[in-house]
Each structure stands twice: as C-alpha cells, then as structure tokens.
Design a protein around this nucleic acid. Structure first.
Length: 424
DNA sequence: TCTGGGGTCCTAGGACCC
DNA sequence: TCTGGGGTCCTAGGACCC
C-alpha cells in the first residue's frame, strides 16, 4: 500500500497574517518587505498580478506602489512566528507524523493508500485552519515530498481545485510534470535549471526520465534524489524531530555606509549579543565565532569583503567572551578607507550545553563558570520580562546611527499586551 | 539614494597520517 | 627524467531552500 505526503503551505503567509488583524486589507494589494525594508518578501495575489516579482528591490517599484495604492508593511516576525505556531498546532491534531518544514509549511505523512479519503481529510484540515486561525492554506498530496510540492503548486495556482490537489497514478503525475518548467521543481534552482536547459532538459518530466548517471554527474546526488522523487520513489524522509542546529547567524545591512571601525564594532557586538541569546535559548555552546564584513555588491568604487573565524578556548554561551572573540576577528579583517554596507557573525562548532568538554590548556574555575551562568540568566530574564535591550552591552552602542529601523511595522497583535487589537 | 536574512547539504582540494 | 597509495579531516565555495 503506498503512503502519501501532504504538503500544507500557507498562502502568501506574511500578507495573510497582516490581513487577519486588519480585514480592511482584504482584496487590496498588500506586500511585506524584508528586514531592511529593502526587498519584497511576500505579496498578495493582487500584487503578484501587477507583475512585482519575489525579492524585488522596493525602490524600483516606487511609482507602481503609489499608482496602485499598494499597502506596504515591514516584516513583523514576532507576529508571523506566533501565527505559525498556531497553524502548526492545528495541523498536529490531524496527523501523528508531521514535519514543520518552514515558518509557513509543514509535511504530514500518512500510511494509507486511499487517496480519496486523504483528499477529503485535506479539505477538512484546510477548513479548520481557516476557521481557527484565519490563515488560508493550500494542500498538495503526493507519494514523495517532491511530488507533494508539485501538487501544492497546482492547488495554489488553479482555484477550481478548491485549494487541495492530489497526485495519484503515474499518468496523472506525468500529465502534471510535462508542462512544468524544470526550474519550478523543489531542489532545482537557477543554476541547475541553466545547466539542464543547456542539455535540452526543460521540463520536470524530462528530468524524471533522464539517465541516472548523467544526473549524478551534473547535479550531484541531491539532483539524483530529486529525479527519483519525481519517479515516485521517496528519498527524502519526514523529519519529525528537527535536527540539531549547526550554526547560528546574525547579520544586517546598514542604514547607510559605515567607515568607522568603532561603529562596526558596535554592530558586530550587537549581532553577537543576538546570536548568543538564541544560543542560550537552544541550550547550546559555541566553539568559534566567524565575523565578516563587506561593501555593497551594487556600489561603484572599491570593494572589499572578508571573513575570519576565531576559536574560543572552550565552548561557551557567555556573551562577553563571544563579543570579545568577534571583535578580535573584526580588528584583523577591518581595512580603513572602505564604505562598508553589511557585517555579520556566525556561531559555529555548536555543542549541547549540558556536555561541557574541559580544555587541557585553559582552566576555568567552577565558581567562575557558575557566576557567568547566573549573570546570563539574569540578563535574559530581565530582557524577557521588561523587553529586549532593557539591559544591553555597552559595546553594542547607544545611538547606533548605522542601524536601519523598519518604518511600516504593524503591531505585535498576539504577543504584546500593549499592542493587542481592540474590538469596538 | 534605495537591492534581506537564516539556514542546509555537497564537493573539491589541501594538509596530514602511515 | 623518473618520487605511491590509501585514508581522514577540515575548509571554502557553490548550490539549494524559505
């Protein structure tokens, strides 16, 4: 008996979140911007119809935005994260086996061969999510994750299916794959698409029927897995337990050019502080910090980019130690005279906090370690209770002229007492 | 003037070992 | 003139995803 994957994908997720709490946006063109208010990261169907692509730089579409009265929002991840949690909670009631794949997508798996029943269930899931959270979803059903993704595209793009589409027998699958451009397949990006086109492969069906050895040579094993998945052979299993994190990153583009080393140190300190908060939240320690900085890839004039990894004497989650390491790295890669546009840090070599490995060459007393732990718990506790940055590290700066701030942020409707929506 | 951020995985190549 | 073979580990770079 074949088993099936359901891919549940929230429609225009960030836009839908904004609409739940602001129903006047319904039917109007709405877009949500990236962190820096620089790019478009979510579009309502009305915006898609105007031809504004995903990831488009906002400044190029200013006149179109004004002409059509497009409602523009900065991203509000506090809200989206909370709404995501609610949607996932609803989904988990319907399936014992579920993988949260991203903020707006989840795979459910069923060991059932009855496609009719599954389709019926999918419609019930869709109605329930809509009723309980206000978020519209589309559901694709297939024998592999990749085919469920294909089915989801159909569900989303063809309204006549009512938001649910199932791929069953081979002839049905092939009928779907033949008109599908190969670059739309999950796992085939722009570069692979180009390679494939150069060799006369334009559709998902052509990839499915290409020889294994050729695919392996040109697209590596990941591409071969994708081809097998298109053939209905499941190679990408459901991951119910999220695998442990391998790295924690934090980076931002600056509001303006930054030339001063002191300002870069503030930025690097701030990003390290943020990443260290996440690190402790995940009960992990970091063994090294990578710091990088770069000028804008779009600007005229001299360019420079560099990165450096600094190792800690022992893995730690103590913010001051991490900041010190990051700033040491910065000092080594910083070159005066450039206009920097972005900096970032990456915590790597992550290990579980409960399993501290002692160092042969670096001794830290138990008291010292305990004191650091208490200090970080106190800082995290105060910031959790009274708001982020109630306590901050002086090295991350006070004024921060380099920092960009979102200008169209909606309220944190569901997670902040003072920003709750009011019903009159 | 203005172009995001956070992840994962794979491969090739270099350093090193015996 | 001519300098092995087999293995591991690490890193950088490139590809992909949302």
């Amino acid at each position: 008996m074949p088993s099936f994957f359901l891919l549940v994908d929230c429609n225009n997720f960030y836009v839908s979140c904004e609409r739940v709490f602001n129903p006047s946006l319904e039917g109007k063109p709405v877009m949500v911007l990236s962190n820096n208010d620089g790019c478009v990261v979510a579009r309502s169907n009305e915006v898609k119809a105007l031809g504004i692509p995903m990831g488009a730089p906002v400044f190029k579409y200013r006149s179109l935005i004004e002409r059509h009265g497009i409602q523009v929002f900065s991203s509000n991840y506090t809200l989206y994260g909370d709404m995501s949690r609610r949607v996932m909670a609803v989904l988990s009631r319907f399936a014992p086996d579920m993988e949260i794949y991203s903020i707006d997508e989840a795979f459910l798996s069923f060991r059932s061969g009855d496609l009719r029943k599954l389709e019926h269930l999918a419609r019930r899931i869709r109605r329930t999510v809509w009723k309980w959270t206000g978020i519209p979803v589309s559901i694709g059903i297939g024998q592999t994750k990749t085919l469920a993704k294909v089915a989801n595209r159909v569900a989303k793009s063809s309204p006549e299916y009512g938001g649910v589409f199932a791929l069953g027998d081979t002839s049905g699958v092939d009928a779907c794959l033949k008109p599908l451009p190969v670059g739309k397949v999950w796992g085939i990006g722009r570069r692979h698409e180009k390679t494939l086109r150069c060799h006369g492969i334009y559709t998902a069906y052509q990839l499915k029927t290409a020889p294994d050895s050729w695919i392996r040579r040109h697209l590596s094993v990941t591409g071969l897995r994708t081809a097998w998945e298109l053939r209905g052979i499941s190679c990408i299993p459901l991951e119910e337990v999220p695998s442990p994190k391998k790295g924690i990153a934090c980076s931002r583009t600056f509001e303006r050019w930054v030339e001063a080393r002191e300002e870069l140190r503030e930025a690097v300190s701030l990003y390290t502080t943020r990443a260290a908060e996440k690190l402790r939240g995940s009960r992990l320690l970091a063994a090294c910090v990578q710091v990088y900085l770069t000028t804008s890839p779009y600007q005229e004039g001299p360019r420079y980019a560099n990165a450096l990894t600094c190792h800690l004497p022992v893995p730690t989650d103590y913010t001051p130690s991490l900041i010190a390491a990051a700033c040491r790295g910065l000092d080594r890669i910083f070159k005066p005279g450039y206009r920097y546009k972005k900096a970032g840090i990456l915590l790597m070599g992550l290990t579980r906090a409960g399993r501290r490995q002692a160092s042969l060459f670096y001794h830290q007393s138990r008291e010292d370690l305990a004191r650091q732990g208490r200090l970080m718990r106190a800082v995290d506790g105060i910031n959790a209770r009274y708001g982020r940055e109630t306590l901050r590290f002086a090295s991350s700066g006070i004024v921060r002229e380099w920092q960009s701030r979102p200008s169209h942020r909606s309220p944190r409707y569901t997670t902040c007492w003072s920003e709750l929506p009011r019903v009159r």
